[in-house]
Design a protein around this nucleic acid. Sequence first.
DNA 1: GAAAATGTTATCAT
DNA 2: TATGATAACATTTT
Length: 254
Amino acid sequence: MPEGPSIHILREEAARFAGKTVLRASGNSSIDMARLVGHRIVAVRSWGKHLLVEFKSFSLRIHLLMFGSYRINEGKDGAVPRLSLGFANGEELNFYSCSVRYVEEPLDLVYDWSADVLSDAWDAAAARKKLRAMPGTLVCDALLDQSVFSGVGNIIKNEVLFRIRLHPLSTVGALPAPKLRELVVQARQYSFDFLEWKKAFVLRQHWLAHTKRICPRCNIPFVKAYLGKTQRRSFFCESCQRLYQAHQAPFELT
DNA sequence: GAAAATGTTATCAT
DNA sequence: TATGATAACATTTT
């Protein structure tokens, strides 16, 4: 369920609770839920895959991890909420199998909004600068680095690399400037495409590489491998996705 | 029904 | 101490 665009949708749906006061909080989370009761939600925000419910003096951070889900104004069959927030008129916001935490500091101090690929505050130049500082990193790992591309997940990773014809084992430092620029542009652009397709329930049919067996450009089999320090599934075409590697030895002189 | 998977973090080992 | 490997968590789809 959850890459950045899915959380963006969740945030839009949960925005209705901004300004409302929590009347009840329950669930199997280990956080102090009583603390929430009586507090008014100032805003519902998101940063990449984090959903942030902001109160006046603290915030709640929900991360759906791999299998999390949520329901608004209804329960989920046979599932106990990790956290259930009750509001006036029987309204409720329920989260299942997710990570729940308090953030004590002001959100603007904790989060770098310019790293969120779906944010108005997204800063492509800042992302390029971060990438230039990690020349030895594989592009498949760089795309999943939340401090650079907050919200990008494994599906977006595979689709972006296919879209810009870039081999996942390419090294960030070996990319020509225009390619690096394209990587940054498409990480954001594909995330918006993902968002629109997800909203229209047509996301999966737009996948060109992720879980696919044949390259739609070359008509030859994709390679499926678990790559990078993250060891996540990669689907790529060895024919049309170019591999850029450093010409010099892959160790650093210190 | 087994296996895999849209993710992150805690803990242990080196 | 810092880095890295491993485990842990939990649910739906193939």
